[in-house]
Write a protein that binds this DNA or RNA. Structure first.
Lengths: 187, 187
DNA sequence: ACAAAAGTGTTTCCTATACACCCATGC
DNA sequence: GCATGGGTGTATAGGAAACACTTTTGT
């Protein structure tokens, strides 16, 4: 989602301001966000000297509050159909994509973007979208299972096929335990 | 080197301000610098609301201007003997180390820290210092040579041993060509 | 019966690592 | 002649990538 946020207040950190703005726009809490580097070109905003600290967030498009988005005339775009943005905002988006790809390659960041229950195929499609490349489903499944941070449920999603495909959930507890034991995830 | 820089001016970017401050302190130009993430905790500076954008730079300790450093009472520290710094500045240093390790693992960033001519051993010692781990000299040499961005000179450094060890220089042209061909360096 | 997606193992290759000896020189 | 650091090659193991067929079920 592309949106040019507001200013931050004296009583909050930049992280808090980003969280606040995103909440106003989507009604969502507890969203993964990460700060990118500061944009401070003197003439980037022809009107005023403006220094911007962009953030990117992982928002499950199915979960946001449509009304709020519309109210502020924010909009969703497909990356492949990204329009020309104002000032240097296209650079910001590019930076966000690169950062996301890096992050996703060393952390199971993708789970933030899925519903609580999801299929292997959903997860793979998501990673393929982030990495902009196709992946072999056998190798993908192997890798994910090797991480041992998913729980396979006794339920199937019947939407996508006649056979149905098993649902999984992310095991946050296991994940945190592994991280605290110093494990680094490579995907 | 730990130094708490000055403010930036209306006429410069943050990058430019960082370059300017570093120049004042060391007399050095064309130094590799990278911006870290913004520190904006409301009470990080008990006196004033202060937002800091830390940078780390790669400075060859042999090349800086000692007088200037002293004039501003900046100081060099060994990382293993880092003192308690003011406010959240220790966090900044930690962040810089992590970032440097990452960068060094995917780009031949270490060359910035060496003189124009250096030995394989120098380079290895530098990487060992950055990564805080010992490396096998055969494997190290192999890796570096595989990158094919060094030129072996017909000169030897006679300081470190009786046999002497060959000097190399960094081939910036080759390096840039490889980068522009999309090659990613893994060290 | 067939179309459509799900699920599952093995082989191959390549990269990363471990490892030990000879060389040249100054003293 | 010996002590010091410099230089070099090979064997092995582990991880990544390539690859194809069977299963289930709705129509």
């Amino acid at each position: 989602m592309v949106f040019n946020g507001w200013l931050f207040e004296k009583t909050e950190t930049l992280d808090q301001a980003a969280i606040r703005v995103l909440y106003h726009l989507t009604g969502l809490h507890n969203i993964y966000m990460e700060q990118l580097i500061v944009f401070s070109e003197v003439d980037r905003d022809p009107g005023d000297r403006t220094i911007s600290v962009p953030y990117y967030a992982l928002i499950n498009i199915a979960e946001h509050n449509t009304e709020l988005i519309e109210q502020y005339s924010a909009q969703w775009f497909n990356l492949s159909e990204l329009p020309d943005l104002i000032f240097d905002h296209n650079d910001m988006v590019l930076q966000a994509i690169k950062r996301l790809q890096y992050k996703a390659s060393i952390q199971p960041i993708g789970f933030e973007l899925l519903p609580a229950k999801f299929t292997m195929r959903h997860l793979q499609k998501l990673y393929e979208a982030i990495m902009r490349e196709g992946m072999d489903k056998r190798n993908f499944t192997k890798k994910i299972n090797a991480l041992d941070i998913l729980v396979k449920l006794n339920e199937k999603d019947m939407e996508s096929s006649k056979k149905g495909s098993f649902l999984y959930k992310f095991d946050q507890e296991k994940y945190l335990e592994k991280v605290s034991n110093g494990l680094v995830f490579k995907l």
